[in-house]
Design a protein around this nucleic acid. Structure first.
Lengths: 252, 252
DNA sequence: CTATTGTGTCTGGGATACCAGACTGAAGGA
DNA sequence: TCCTTCAGTCTGGTATCCCAGACACAATAG
């Protein structure tokens, strides 16, 4: 524990609001096990600085514009943004589709980057906007990372009620099914998701590894097409995604 | 001033790192007028919680992954994201180009949202990625917002050495030139930027106003084409952008 | 190689921030 | 309408955090 509890608590409030969304001061006090008056003092400071906004009509507190500013600055200043993004842009141009960079967070994948040069696609693109998180077990990006983790770690990460929930009722439904899928995808070097996140959409992803060969992120391409049409494109798309991930690994 | 200086100082460190990028602890202490030991204590807490990362080889401190997480969560949880983004998606589909939402920050515009369905475009899209900030005076988005502000406020915002710096040597070079441009753009209801941010690219933007008719953001469309070709598209694009801004205003 | 500057850590005392709990007012339920 | 619950504010005493400054080590400049 650092020597500045007020600092720790302030940051804990930010993280709690990030993970659970807008909530009351009493909920924050309960979650963080702090006196309500302490939480109100910290919220007052957070509000003054714009990190938190008080929604008076709802009697709830939420993250504010300063949090957005700092977070986007952090994203822009991340050395990966400088190294990785040009590769994503090049891949998007090459395959003429939407490309993402995702990172694992617990049992979810968080999309940090997104570059598009899609062909004709009528589907809303909201679902993989920067900042969105989706279950790792049902996304190509998530599985590309999970496939390179020790299985004990995968088991621990997915030991939650929501790990196998899927909005399209597709994808692995149990740990043993997941293990089979991850084994196959690790051997082939890329992960594929067809219709698990969005019907009529498919994704291919390859992991990005650090110097110790640990997966840190995944590059993915998403296309809108039927399963039959997608079969024709798998070889080209997977080759392009793997090549891009390898170039990123080499650029370290 | 809040009653929790440690909280204020912690947040001030985050903002300073956001605005000036990675720097030494002594620089932070000087900027914030805090004792170095206090700054080190706060940095220790920020590092423990992942909000800050110590780049030991550079002996500098920078924003860390927790700052990215909280910022992206703040962006996603922003009620505007829920209200505004579907309109941007629809506009992108309609005009088949890249669409942004930008907000004013000082003399710069910050891109909060970006949706793409571009036609063929070989230019890198990095320059208007989410989180990027550009001078307000040379971007359509920035000028769309400035055009709706009292000119005294515009004068105050641009009273900096960098307000009229442009990487393409185009755009207004003085306050009086800016005033003329803003007057014209306010009358026509949209702002246009041709080749000021990127050569061979043009943007059209319309402001989004709050209930007091104050500009809070701007919607813009960016296309890649020559100045001659762009002239043919101005009417259609500006009508679409203005209509989208009006729909967003009506959705409040 | 030496001197200077800057980074990072440590200490103890005094100023102050945190906590428990009371109070007021608003919202919700019966 | 009344009662209960919750939000938000306030107070004062004690535990503790912040600051000045010293020290060791690393990096830079001459």
């Amino acid at each position: 524990m650092g020597k500045v509890p007020a600092a720790s608590h302030t940051l804990a409030i930010l993280r709690t609001l990030a993970s659970r969304g807008a909530c009351s001061a009493s909920t924050l006090a309960a979650d963080l096990q702090l006196p309500r008056s302490t939480v109100y003092h910290l919220l007052a400071t957070l509000r003054e600085t714009g990190f938190v906004v008080h929604r008076e009509s709802e009697r709830r507190w939420s993250l504010g514009p300063s949090a957005v500013d700092v977070g986007l600055a952090a994203l822009r200043q991340d050395p990966r943004d400088i190294v990785v993004r040009p590769h994503l842009i090049r891949l998007a141009e090459q395959v003429n589709e939407t490309v993402h960079l995702g990172v694992l967070q617990g049992a979810e994948v968080l999309y940090l980057m997104k570059e598009s040069r899609p062909g004709i696609s009528a589907a809303p693109t909201l679902i993989t906007a920067v900042g969105v998180r989706l279950p790792a077990t049902t996304t190509a990006s998530g599985r590309a990372i999970l496939a390179r983790l020790p299985f004990e770690q995968v088991r621990a990460l997915t030991a939650t009620p929501t790990a196998f929930v899927s909005r399209t009722e597709r994808g692995p439904r149990s740990l043993s099914q997941l293990r089979s899928v991850l084994d196959r995808e690790r051997r082939q070097g890329y992960s594929v998701e067809i219709g698990e996140i969005m019907l009529d959409h498919a994704s291919i992803a390859a992991p990005i590894l650090d110097v110790r060969q640990q997966p840190t992120a995944a590059v993915s391409v998403t296309v809108r097409c039927s399963e039959a049409d997608f079969a024709d494109r798998v070889d080209d798309l997977s080759a392009a995604v793997i090549a891009t991930a390898e170039r990123i690994n080499a650029a370290r």
